[in-house]
Protein backbone atom coordinates (compact mmCIF):
# COMPACT_ATOMS: atom_id res chain seq x y z
CA UNK A 1 0.00 0.00 0.00
CA UNK A 2 1.22 3.50 -0.68
CA UNK A 3 2.30 5.78 2.12
CA UNK A 4 -0.77 8.01 1.97
CA UNK A 5 -3.08 5.03 2.38
CA UNK A 6 -1.13 3.74 5.37
CA UNK A 7 -1.09 7.15 7.05
CA UNK A 8 -4.78 7.69 6.39
CA UNK A 9 -5.48 4.35 8.03
CA UNK A 10 -3.43 5.48 11.03
CA UNK A 11 -5.46 8.70 11.26
CA UNK A 12 -8.70 6.73 11.04
CA UNK A 13 -7.59 4.38 13.78
CA UNK A 14 -6.62 7.32 15.96
CA UNK A 15 -10.06 8.91 15.44
CA UNK A 16 -11.69 5.64 16.49
CA UNK A 17 -9.46 5.11 19.52
CA UNK A 18 -9.88 8.57 21.00
CA UNK A 19 -13.61 8.42 20.13
CA UNK A 20 -13.40 11.57 18.01
CA UNK A 21 -15.40 9.73 15.38
CA UNK A 22 -18.23 9.48 17.92
CA UNK A 23 -18.29 12.67 19.92
CA UNK A 24 -17.59 15.14 17.12
CA UNK A 25 -20.78 14.29 15.13
CA UNK A 26 -22.75 13.82 18.37
CA UNK A 27 -21.93 17.34 19.55
CA UNK A 28 -22.78 18.96 16.21
CA UNK A 29 -26.08 17.05 15.96
CA UNK A 30 -26.89 18.03 19.54
CA UNK A 31 -26.29 21.73 18.88
CA UNK A 32 -28.16 21.39 15.60
CA UNK A 33 -31.35 20.03 17.16
CA UNK A 34 -31.29 22.00 20.42
CA UNK A 35 -31.65 25.28 18.51
CA UNK A 36 -35.01 24.52 16.78
CA UNK A 37 -36.34 22.83 19.93
CA UNK A 38 -35.58 25.82 22.18
CA UNK A 39 -36.91 28.28 19.61
CA UNK A 40 -40.13 26.31 19.38
CA UNK A 41 -40.62 25.96 23.12
CA UNK A 42 -39.44 29.51 23.93
CA UNK A 43 -42.88 30.70 25.17
CA UNK A 44 -43.21 27.71 27.51
CA UNK A 45 -39.60 28.08 28.68
CA UNK A 46 -40.10 31.74 29.59
CA UNK A 47 -43.42 30.93 31.25
CA UNK A 48 -41.93 28.20 33.41
CA UNK A 49 -38.88 30.30 34.26
CA UNK A 50 -41.27 32.57 36.10
CA UNK A 51 -40.47 36.09 37.34
CA UNK A 52 -43.12 37.50 35.05
CA UNK A 53 -45.60 40.01 36.47
CA UNK A 54 -49.19 38.85 36.70
CA UNK A 55 -50.98 39.15 33.38
CA UNK A 56 -47.88 39.78 31.29
CA UNK A 57 -48.53 38.88 27.67
CA UNK A 58 -45.86 38.24 25.11
CA UNK A 59 -46.45 37.88 21.43
CA UNK A 60 -43.82 35.60 19.93
CA UNK A 61 -43.71 35.72 16.18
CA UNK A 62 -43.09 32.20 14.87
CA UNK A 63 -39.70 32.30 13.14
CA UNK A 64 -39.44 31.32 9.50
CA UNK A 65 -37.89 27.86 8.88
CA UNK A 66 -34.95 29.51 7.15
CA UNK A 67 -34.28 31.81 10.11
CA UNK A 68 -33.95 28.83 12.44
CA UNK A 69 -31.45 27.14 10.12
CA UNK A 70 -29.45 30.38 10.03
CA UNK A 71 -29.35 30.50 13.84
CA UNK A 72 -28.07 26.90 13.86
CA UNK A 73 -25.27 28.15 11.61
CA UNK A 74 -24.74 30.97 14.10
CA UNK A 75 -24.18 28.36 16.82
CA UNK A 76 -21.67 26.53 14.62
CA UNK A 77 -19.88 29.78 13.82
CA UNK A 78 -19.07 30.20 17.51
CA UNK A 79 -19.23 26.98 19.56
CA UNK A 80 -18.75 24.72 16.53
CA UNK A 81 -15.56 26.47 15.45
CA UNK A 82 -14.13 26.36 18.99
CA UNK A 83 -14.84 22.62 19.20
CA UNK A 84 -13.18 22.03 15.81
CA UNK A 85 -10.12 24.00 17.00
CA UNK A 86 -9.90 21.97 20.21
CA UNK A 87 -10.34 18.72 18.30
CA UNK A 88 -7.57 19.39 15.78
CA UNK A 89 -5.10 21.71 17.52
CA UNK A 90 -2.94 18.72 18.43
CA UNK A 91 -3.01 17.05 15.02
CA UNK A 92 0.69 17.72 14.35
CA UNK A 93 1.89 19.60 17.45
CA UNK A 94 0.53 17.05 19.92
CA UNK A 95 2.05 14.19 17.96
CA UNK A 96 5.47 15.84 18.12
CA UNK A 97 5.32 16.34 21.87
CA UNK A 98 4.04 12.89 22.69
CA UNK A 99 6.69 11.10 20.67
CA UNK A 100 4.38 9.49 18.12
CA UNK A 101 6.00 11.72 15.55
CA UNK A 102 9.44 10.33 16.36
CA UNK A 103 8.29 6.92 15.19
CA UNK A 104 7.18 8.46 11.90
CA UNK A 105 9.98 10.94 11.28
CA UNK A 106 12.79 8.38 11.56
CA UNK A 107 11.38 6.64 8.49
CA UNK A 108 11.66 8.00 4.98
CA UNK A 109 8.43 9.92 5.36
CA UNK A 110 6.70 11.75 2.56
CA UNK A 111 5.57 14.98 4.20
CA UNK A 112 2.85 15.70 1.61
CA UNK A 113 1.35 12.28 2.37
CA UNK A 114 1.75 12.91 6.11
CA UNK A 115 0.00 16.28 6.13
CA UNK A 116 -2.61 15.36 3.54
CA UNK A 117 -3.63 12.22 5.45
CA UNK A 118 -4.38 14.43 8.45
CA UNK A 119 -6.15 16.96 6.26
CA UNK A 120 -8.37 14.37 4.55
CA UNK A 121 -9.35 12.79 7.86
CA UNK A 122 -10.02 16.14 9.60
CA UNK A 123 -12.04 17.51 6.68
CA UNK A 124 -14.09 14.31 6.32
CA UNK A 125 -14.87 14.14 10.03
CA UNK A 126 -15.60 17.88 10.24
CA UNK A 127 -17.84 17.96 7.19
CA UNK A 128 -19.69 14.79 8.19
CA UNK A 129 -20.39 16.35 11.60
CA UNK A 130 -21.57 19.66 10.14
CA UNK A 131 -23.81 17.98 7.55
CA UNK A 132 -25.31 15.56 10.08
CA UNK A 133 -25.94 18.52 12.36
CA UNK A 134 -27.64 20.51 9.61
CA UNK A 135 -29.72 17.47 8.59
CA UNK A 136 -30.82 16.91 12.19
CA UNK A 137 -31.69 20.60 12.44
CA UNK A 138 -33.59 20.48 9.13
CA UNK A 139 -35.63 17.52 10.36
CA UNK A 140 -36.68 19.37 13.51
CA UNK A 141 -37.34 22.56 11.58
CA UNK A 142 -39.56 20.59 9.21
CA UNK A 143 -41.36 19.12 12.23
CA UNK A 144 -41.94 22.42 14.01
CA UNK A 145 -41.77 25.30 11.55
CA UNK A 146 -42.28 24.07 8.02
CA UNK A 147 -40.08 22.83 5.24
CA UNK A 148 -37.02 24.27 3.57
CA UNK A 149 -36.58 23.58 -0.14
CA UNK A 150 -34.06 20.76 -0.63
CA UNK A 151 -32.17 22.72 -3.30
CA UNK A 152 -31.81 25.75 -1.03
CA UNK A 153 -30.61 23.51 1.78
CA UNK A 154 -27.97 21.83 -0.40
CA UNK A 155 -26.64 25.14 -1.70
CA UNK A 156 -26.58 26.52 1.84
CA UNK A 157 -24.74 23.55 3.33
CA UNK A 158 -22.32 23.27 0.39
CA UNK A 159 -21.34 26.95 0.62
CA UNK A 160 -20.84 26.67 4.35
CA UNK A 161 -18.74 23.53 3.81
CA UNK A 162 -16.21 25.55 1.78
CA UNK A 163 -15.71 27.79 4.79
CA UNK A 164 -15.36 24.83 7.18
CA UNK A 165 -12.73 23.24 4.90
CA UNK A 166 -10.71 26.48 4.85
CA UNK A 167 -11.07 26.82 8.62
CA UNK A 168 -9.86 23.27 9.33
CA UNK A 169 -6.93 23.78 6.98
CA UNK A 170 -5.89 26.88 8.93
CA UNK A 171 -6.11 24.94 12.23
CA UNK A 172 -3.96 22.08 10.87
CA UNK A 173 -1.40 24.49 9.46
CA UNK A 174 -1.20 26.31 12.80
CA UNK A 175 -0.67 22.93 14.45
CA UNK A 176 2.20 22.19 12.07
CA UNK A 177 3.70 25.65 12.53
CA UNK A 178 3.84 25.87 16.31
CA UNK A 179 5.59 23.81 18.97
CA UNK A 180 2.64 23.41 21.31
CA UNK A 181 -1.01 22.52 20.68
CA UNK A 182 -2.31 25.19 23.04
CA UNK A 183 -0.31 27.77 21.16
CA UNK A 184 -1.67 26.42 17.86
CA UNK A 185 -5.23 26.73 19.15
CA UNK A 186 -4.64 30.28 20.39
CA UNK A 187 -3.01 31.41 17.14
CA UNK A 188 -5.67 29.80 14.92
CA UNK A 189 -8.44 31.31 17.03
CA UNK A 190 -6.84 34.76 17.14
CA UNK A 191 -6.19 34.69 13.38
CA UNK A 192 -9.73 33.69 12.41
CA UNK A 193 -11.54 35.92 14.90
CA UNK A 194 -9.32 38.91 14.07
CA UNK A 195 -9.99 38.34 10.38
CA UNK A 196 -13.71 38.09 11.08
CA UNK A 197 -13.73 41.37 13.01
CA UNK A 198 -11.71 43.07 10.28
CA UNK A 199 -14.04 41.69 7.64
CA UNK A 200 -17.13 42.89 9.48
CA UNK A 201 -15.69 46.36 10.15
CA UNK A 202 -14.05 47.10 6.82
CA UNK A 203 -15.73 44.39 4.77
CA UNK A 204 -18.09 46.86 3.14
CA UNK A 205 -15.23 47.84 0.84
CA UNK A 206 -14.90 44.38 -0.65
CA UNK A 207 -17.46 41.75 -1.50
CA UNK A 208 -15.28 38.79 -2.38
CA UNK A 209 -13.99 37.26 0.83
CA UNK A 210 -13.98 33.69 2.17
CA UNK A 211 -15.11 35.10 5.52
CA UNK A 212 -18.33 36.20 3.87
CA UNK A 213 -19.12 32.64 2.72
CA UNK A 214 -21.35 31.92 5.76
CA UNK A 215 -23.30 35.09 4.94
CA UNK A 216 -23.59 34.06 1.27
CA UNK A 217 -24.62 30.56 2.38
CA UNK A 218 -27.40 32.24 4.32
CA UNK A 219 -28.61 34.19 1.31
CA UNK A 220 -29.09 30.96 -0.67
CA UNK A 221 -32.04 30.36 1.66
CA UNK A 222 -33.71 33.57 0.57
CA UNK A 223 -33.18 33.64 -3.18
CA UNK A 224 -29.52 33.71 -4.17
CA UNK A 225 -26.39 35.71 -3.34
CA UNK A 226 -24.87 37.92 -6.00
CA UNK A 227 -23.37 35.36 -8.38
CA UNK A 228 -20.09 37.23 -8.92
CA UNK A 229 -19.50 37.89 -5.23
CA UNK A 230 -20.27 34.32 -4.32
CA UNK A 231 -18.08 32.68 -6.94
CA UNK A 232 -15.15 35.00 -6.29
CA UNK A 233 -15.38 34.26 -2.58
CA UNK A 234 -15.49 30.54 -3.29
CA UNK A 235 -12.50 30.75 -5.62
CA UNK A 236 -10.60 32.72 -2.98
CA UNK A 237 -11.53 30.15 -0.32
CA UNK A 238 -10.25 27.29 -2.50
CA UNK A 239 -7.02 29.15 -3.33
CA UNK A 240 -6.41 30.00 0.33
CA UNK A 241 -7.07 26.38 1.29
CA UNK A 242 -4.49 25.20 -1.26
CA UNK A 243 -2.03 27.85 -0.03
CA UNK A 244 -2.44 26.76 3.60
CA UNK A 245 -2.08 23.08 2.62
CA UNK A 246 1.20 23.92 0.89
CA UNK A 247 2.33 25.94 3.90
CA UNK A 248 1.29 23.11 6.23
CA UNK A 249 3.32 20.52 4.32
CA UNK A 250 6.37 22.79 4.28
CA UNK A 251 6.05 23.63 7.97
CA UNK A 252 5.56 20.04 9.09
CA UNK A 253 8.78 19.18 7.26
CA UNK A 254 10.71 22.22 8.52
CA UNK A 255 9.60 21.75 12.14
CA UNK A 256 10.19 18.01 12.22
CA UNK A 257 13.28 18.64 14.36
CA UNK A 258 11.10 19.97 17.21
CA UNK A 259 10.03 16.44 18.02
CA UNK A 260 10.59 15.29 21.59
CA UNK A 261 12.23 11.91 21.80
Amino acid sequence: MNQFGVLLKKEWREHVRNYKILWLPAVFVLFGIIEPVTQYFLPQIIESAGNLPEGAVFEFPTPEPEQVLVSVMGQYQFIGLIILILAYMGAVAGERRSGTATLLYVRPLSYPAYFLSKWVMAVSAGLASVWLGFLGAAYYIWLFFGDIAAGDFLQFAASYSLWIILFLTIVLTASAALPHQGLAAAVAMALVFAAQILDSLLGVYWTASPLKLPAYAQSWLAGAPDAGDFWWSSVLAVLLTLLFIGLGIWLSKRNAAQTKV
Binding site: N18, Y19, G90, E95
Partner: peptide, 9 residues
Amino acid sequence: YFIFGRRNY
Protein backbone atom coordinates in the same frame (compact mmCIF):
# COMPACT_ATOMS: atom_id res chain seq x y z
CA TYR B 1 -12.76 15.14 29.07
CA PHE B 2 -12.19 13.49 25.68
CA ILE B 3 -9.87 16.30 24.59
CA PHE B 4 -7.96 17.08 27.78
CA GLY B 5 -8.60 14.25 30.21
CA ARG B 6 -7.52 11.21 28.24
CA ARG B 7 -3.95 10.54 27.26
CA ASN B 8 -4.77 10.38 23.60
CA TYR B 9 -1.31 9.72 22.34
